[in-house]
């Protein structure tokens, strides 16, 4: 089984937007990977005119919130680094032939969510990802903020479509529908923050740690 990787478009967010953006993305991915019986729940973002779907699983929601907290915590501690969240799906295999009698995770998918958190949300309004946006000194900050917000909304929408496209295009690697109770197949959310240069290395390290050959295929 091969492992698919999806790198989601980087989003420039301000600190206060992290939670909603992450929720939206993580839940959207999980909704597409929760192949058990779900009763979807529509959630409207408060900051953006976007409605995303949760699969309505408390445990899953709790876990996501927890990870988001971790992420925000990390962002606060390491404000100068790029931050990444990786959502990975795996299957659990009991490898009899293994040297260690441990349960092995067979990863079949990684989603990388890339957030670029603006460091001075209030002071430097000029840090927009739309470089064309040049704010005059006394210019209306509100206007700038709203246009930045609109841009982020559009980008977030793009990311959601990116997820949908990916889900559409790559179906073969998805393991069969789980028969067990869990809504979703097993997943983990990991957080990494690093400077730009170390980004790929970090990924690579993690792949080595997980140690499954399929990661490299």
């Amino acid at each position: 089984m091969n492992c698919e990787v999806c790198q989601l478009k980087e989003l420039d967010v301000e600190h206060f937007e992290i939670r909603e953006v992450l929720r939206c993305i993580l839940h959207t991915i999980l909704f597409h990977r929760a192949l058990g019986l779900v009763r979807p729940k529509d959630i409207d973002l408060e900051l953006f005119e976007i409605t995303y779907v949760q699969c309505g699983d408390v445990e899953l929601e709790r876990k996501i919130e927890e990870k988001i907290d971790q992420f925000i915590d990390r962002v606060e501690k390491h404000p100068n680094k790029k931050n990444q969240i990786c959502l990975s799906f795996y299957e659990v295999k009991n490898k009899q032939a293994a040297w260690f009698n441990k349960v092995e995770r067979l990863y079949w998918e990684h989603w990388y969510i890339n957030l670029n958190v603006a460091q001075h949300p209030k002071g430097h309004s000029s840090k927009f990802h739309h470089s064309k946006l040049v704010i005059g000194p006394g210019d209306s900050a509100a206007e700038a903020r709203s246009s930045r917000r609109a841009a982020l909304e559009a980008s977030l929408r793009d990311v959601l479509f990116q997820i949908i496209r990916f889900v559409n295009e790559k179906k073969d690697h998805v393991p069969p529908i789980p028969n067990h109770e869990g809504v979703s197949s097993p997943y983990e959310i990991t957080i990494s923050s690093s400077s730009d240069s170390a980004f790929g290395m970090d990924m690579f390290k993690r792949m080595l740690q997980t140690g499954h050959p399929s990661m490299l295929s």
Binding site: T28, L35, T51, R157, N168, K171, D172, V174
Partner: peptide, 24 residues
């Protein structure tokens, strides 16, 4: 992909993405 199981699984995936798409 030709088995009914696979078809079913892919249909689920497709419907999930449809569900999300109609809202976008």
């Amino acid at each position: 992909s030709t088995s009914s199981h696979a078809l079913y699984k892919k249909s689920i995936l497709l419907l999930r993405s449809l569900y999300a798409t109609v809202r976008l």
